[in-house]
Amino acid sequence: MPDRLAYAPGDVVRTYRHDPPHHTRLPRYARGKLGVVVEPEGRAPLADIRSQGRDDAPVEMVYAVRFAARDLWGEGDHDVVLDLSESYLRKADADVR
């Protein structure tokens, strides 16, 4: 297991946009949105795979990611923090599906 983390605190990331046909732990309201990594939270099996009853779920780093309400909803002054698996995230400037 590589020790190097894909994202560091302060990194700007974008969540995936698509709507998978299976369970996922990226809520709809936070899809395709820009956020800032707070910190890594520890590794966990990817719920998207595990929830399909498969035993080959990759164990991924989960990151706390902070989103500004304005970026989520177009309004509001609060922040929302979500815990998101590494494969839900891309570097902010990367091409996002």
Binding site: Y29, V62, R66, G76, L84
Partner: peptide, 28 residues
């Protein structure tokens, strides 16, 4: 989406300069 409105319904009003952070427990 609208934490201030929800908090107000619980009887909580915050000063204008207090920022709200909502923690959505989406993982472990």
């Amino acid at each position: 989406r609208e934490p201030l409105a929800v908090l107000a319904e619980f009887g909580v009003t915050l000063p204008d300069d207090v920022k709200v952070t909502v923690w959505d427990s989406s993982a472990e």
